[in-house]
């Protein structure tokens, strides 16, 4: 199994070099809290050796708690400003990682982008269908609710397909390292999922995706 590309990371206290891709907490040379590399994977921050689509939610939660215990800035009240800032970076990155990985859509998006697969453009058939849905929502509140329900159902159905496409990749070494037919199929599903989530959000049906507007 190959490791993710290493990310050079220097200790802000003593300057010692580290590999940021493994999300280290303490400097090997001086023991100070390390900063977080901006490109570190959320999986590494949450203690998963390699990226994967299927995660155990309760294990993720436990990993988040345990790491919070170790990096929280309150633990470093007696340390230097530099170290306290690093601890603040660590805990913010940790909370962001948890948010990004706790929703299947966001996990899949991260995996697809990491492999370098461009987000798919939507096919004409799908666009027509979407326009038709939007038109139907322009009636009264009941119409709107029917469209929200239908969009949510389609979202769930595509999410199940995404699960079937990505699930088997978890067991294959380097499956998320380079583009593949499966990942391109996943990218197409993600594009459709995003438009459905956008539609539901626009109609006031709530957010189906945490990172709907990011990137």
């Amino acid at each position: 199994m190959s490791r993710p590309a290493s990310l050079p990371l220097a200790c802000r206290v003593c300057g010692a070099d580290h590999d940021g891709s493994t999300a280290p907490i303490a400097c090997v040379a001086c023991g100070a809290v390390l900063p977080v590399h901006p490109q570190v994977s959320p999986f590494a921050l949450l203690g998963l050796a390699r990226p994967r689509f299927h995660v155990d939610d309760s294990a993720l939660d436990r990993a988040w708690l345990e790491r919070s215990r170790r990096v929280h800035p309150d633990r470093f009240a007696r340390k230097s400003d530099a170290e306290r800032r690093c601890a603040a970076e660590q805990v913010a990155a940790l909370n962001d990682a948890k948010r990004a990985l706790s929703v299947p859509y966001d996990r899949a998006l991260w995996l697809v982008q990491r492999a370098g697969v461009p987000l798919a453009t939507l096919g004409p058939a799908w666009l027509t269908e979407l326009m038709e849905l939007r038109e139907r929502a322009e009636g009264d509140d009941a119409d709107k609710q029917r469209v929200i329900d239908e969009a949510r159902a389609r979202f769930a159905e595509r999410l199940a397909t995404l699960d079937a496409v990505l699930g088997p990749l978890d067991d294959i070494d380097d499956a998320y390292a380079t583009p593949s037919a499966a990942l391109r199929r996943a990218a197409a599903l993600l594009a459709e999922l995003k438009t459905l989530a956008r539609l539901v959000d626009d109609l006031g049906g709530g957010k189906l995706i945490a990172t709907l507007d990011e990137r």
Binding site: A88, A92, N95, D96, K98, R99, K207, D213, E214
Partner: peptide
Amino acid sequence: VDKLIARNSPTPCSATHT
């Protein structure tokens, strides 16, 4: 309103929208 950080999110945290 476009919500960037939902209520009951653990703090500290950050979010970006474009």
